[in-house]
């Protein structure tokens, strides 16, 4: 079993989650080695970017932090994981005919965030406060919801590009699985307790007793915080 320092156990992004103490990596010795290799590789620090330039990184990092609410450490290196994909030319096998291929669409859309920041706040995107950045990003999503174009590209397609790559990177990471209680790879072990309410011995219950706030209220609070962030940037 691979060694892990005690403070590397049960890590969740920003130490948030509902499954205290749950660590999907505790099961790694019961995975097949090809899968274990693929998952553990995501823990390797990404020190240098290959695809994004320094200027693009300065826009992509706050963008991805906002999309996934990564407002502190420990952080999943979302931009690094996206960078690897784009550098390898690993596409999704399609692109909209009114959009360039994904790598170019990333470069152009990051540049357009800078353009918007300069127009609205007379500063580069990277120089804005977090709430100002959020207001710029929200404006793109608003255009996406109403099927408008953004810098001559369908905003919907741009929004889909960002969220698709960002979510795939974030939720491929074992720390995100710890956060959401996902059981992770299951070969050759499989799952035994598959009925509603069932758990494997290694799985941890959603800790409703520690956090008795019902789901609906939690989501409401998240919405309120999100709206506050975006609105304060608009002021």
């Amino acid at each position: 079993m691979p060694y892990r320092a005690p403070n590397q156990r049960a890590v969740t992004p920003q130490n948030r989650g509902r499954f205290p103490g749950y660590d999907v990596l505790d099961e790694v010795e019961r995975w097949d080695d090809v899968t274990a290799g693929a998952v553990l590789e995501r823990l390797t620090p990404i020190t240098d970017l290959s695809f994004f330039s320094k200027e693009e990184d300065a826009i992509a990092t706050p963008l991805c932090d906002l999309l996934l609410a990564q407002d502190g450490e420990p952080k999943i290196p979302v931009v690094g994981l996206i960078d690897v994909r784009l550098a390898l030319g690993e596409g999704d096998g399609w692109h909209y005919d009114d959009m360039p291929p994904d790598p170019q669409a990333w470069r152009e859309s990051l540049q357009h965030l800078d353009d918007d920041a300069l127009t609205v706040f007379r500063l580069k995107f990277a120089a804005l406060s977090r709430d100002q950045q959020a207001s710029i990003v929200q404006a793109v999503q608003d255009k996406s919801s109403s099927s408008e174009s953004w810098h001559d590209k369908p905003a919907q397609q741009v929004w889909s590009l960002w969220t698709r790559y960002a979510c795939a990177a974030f939720y491929s990471h074992p720390w995100a699985w710890n956060e959401i209680g996902f059981g992770g790879p299951a070969y050759p072990r499989g799952y035994k307790n598959r009925h509603v309410g069932g758990r494997e011995a290694f799985e941890v219950a959603d800790h409703a007793d520690r956090d008795p706030v019902p789901f609906a209220s939690r989501v409401e609070e998240a919405r309120r915080n999100h709206a506050k962030l975006v609105e304060s940037g608009n002021r």
Partner: peptide, 27 residues
Amino acid sequence: PITWAEHVAAQGHWGETLREYMRDYVH
């Protein structure tokens, strides 16, 4: 999880709301 995140994100959720919905995956 990744496909589920696409489902949640397609509702227009992002940021903290997206994370909160995702945290509820097992339900």
